[in-house]
């Protein structure tokens, strides 16, 4: 399995490459009014309006730094049987790693809020944890988020 890695604080996380449409550089966002702070905003991705999730804010409640290594990972997001596009704002989106399934270990504690955290792998350079994209957005937010997009 090929994965794209990013970092939140000192931790490294990975997203399955098959879920990724494209990695794009930083752009200007138009902000969501009254939205949770982890919604960084929306942007025009190749003619379509795509919402962007600030991963650092979502996981650690810190705003992502606008560095050269900070990128938007555009992923496929399936909800209500429809496939949407979703941008994930991550820091240090710099590496691609290949993971073998048998090397993965079960994570320890998972709370209701951190259901997106997947299995772990112990690499020479440190621990990397898989992210389940689907679980990144709380269920109650999902519908409104993309309906909002459609209305735009």
């Amino acid at each position: 399995m090929l994965c794209l890695t990013f970092e939140v604080g000192e931790n490294r996380y990975a997203i399955d490459a098959n879920e990724i449409i494209e990695v794009v550089p930083l752009v200007n966002f138009t902000t969501f009014p009254k939205a949770p702070s982890y919604f960084a905003g929306r942007f025009n991705y190749r003619g379509e309006i795509v919402p962007v999730l600030d991963l650092k804010d979502l996981m650690m409640s810190f705003q992502t730094k606008m560095y050269l290594s900070t990128r938007i990972i555009v992923v496929k997001y399936e909800t209500d049987g429809e496939i949407h596009q979703l941008g994930l704002l991550g820091e240090k989106v710099m590496d691609i790693i290949r993971i073998r399934d048998d090397e993965l270990q079960d994570p320890g504690l998972i709370t209701e809020e951190t259901r997106y955290l997947g299995r772990l792998i112990n690499l020479k350079s440190g621990v990397v944890q898989l992210i389940t994209v689907k679980e990144l957005i709380p269920p109650f937010v999902r519908e409104s988020l993309f309906r909002d997009v459609k209305e735009d």
């Binding site: 550089p25 930083l26 991705y45 190749r46 730094k65 560095y67 050269l68 290594s69």
Partner: peptide
Amino acid sequence: KEFFEREVPPEFINSWTLDITR
């Protein structure tokens, strides 16, 4: 990689924003 740990100049973001709409 350390090199990339620096603020993005605003003109980069502007040009990329334009690029990505295409």
